[in-house]
Design a protein around this nucleic acid. Structure first.
Length: 263
DNA sequence: AAGCCTTCCAACCGCAGCTCC
DNA sequence: GGGAGCTGCGGTTGGAAGGCT
């Protein structure tokens, strides 16, 4: 189910991640945090491009990511949000703690898309049988119409709508998520950053330089100047915590406000 | 049993948006 | 203002696994 690992012409490894690579990346991020995706593979001793590392971390290695077993509530929420926002997977995923945009997107295409297509066909058939609905519903507001359409997707929406979450509860849950994985940063008065940098660099292999954009550029063993300017150091001291859900919070609150019973 | 087909998830790719200089 | 560097998003693809004929 995964692509066979291979090295491209630049010496950058592609395809499936090995356990060893996962361990290296996880260990590095847990130790030093997230600071610069292009540099991380270099310092973690990985033959991957930064983009690949980011994807692997975000979609698989992150400690708060859960896999498989979507609940009925999650399915319904995805359906509702997709109806409202379209293919804005990151927006949708932001409201599903532990789910990634990639996973939501895959789940949609694998399981939910068929259902909505089926339901839409059913709706069209019903409309054709009962005539145009625009006249009979002409007095309804757009919001009412939208709500009606969403509910028509699946009867189980009723379950979700009958159990509205309070914004306070939801936000605090998400807030916990955003801090659950605060990188274990070795920030202390006695921290010797140069030692850390040398430590990290000790296992770095060497690859040929090549041209390419930010993401495809292969990691290159750091030069002496790289070691002197370990890029993560200033970041750690200025911004020690990284939140994965900051952007989703406002949206989540906004969405909860719009749930029936919260107006 | 063997070959073909379908499903579905991990990973890749291109590009838009943001920030900094 | 605009160019470079970086990040994140969404569409697409590769291919293993399981089902079907």
């Amino acid at each position: 189910m995964v692509r066979a690992p291979y090295f491209d012409k630049n010496g950058v490894k592609k395809g499936a991640w090995s356990q060893e690579e996962d361990d290296k990346l996880r260990e590095h991020i847990e130790k030093y945090g997230l600071w610069n995706w292009r540099e991380i593979p270099k310092f973690a001793g990985l033959s991957r491009c930064g983009k690949s590392c980011r994807l692997r971390w975000m979609n698989y290695l992150r400690p708060d990511v859960k896999h498989g077993n979507y609940t009925k509530e999650e399915e319904d929420l995805i359906l509702r949000l997709h109806e409202k926002h379209g293919n804005k997977w990151s927006k949708i995923a932001a409201t599903l703690p532990g789910r990634t945009d990639n996973e939501v997107k895959n789940y949609w295409h694998a399981h939910l898309k068929k259902r909505t297509v089926k339901n839409q066909n059913t709706l069209v058939l019903k409309e054709k049988c009962s005539g145009s609905t625009s006249e009979s519903e002409g007095s309804q507001t757009n919001k009412e119409m939208e709500a009606k359409t969403v509910v028509s997707y699946t009867p189980s929406n009723l379950i979700l709508e009958s159990t509205p979450l309070s914004p306070e509860t939801s936000c605090s849950e998400l807030s916990n998520l955003s801090t659950d994985f605060a990188p274990k940063l070795p920030v202390s008065a006695g921290t010797n950053w140069n030692n850390i940098a040398e430590d990290v660099l000790s296992s770095v292999p060497t690859f040929d330089e090549s041209i390419g954009d930010f993401w495809t550029e292969p990691f290159v063993a750091g030069s002496a100047s790289d070691q002197d300017n370990f890029p993560g150091l200033s970041f750690y001291q200025e911004e020690p915590f990284v939140s994965y859900y900051d952007d989703g919070m406002d949206f989540y609150y906004e969405m909860m406000q719009e749930l029936p019973g919260n107006n």
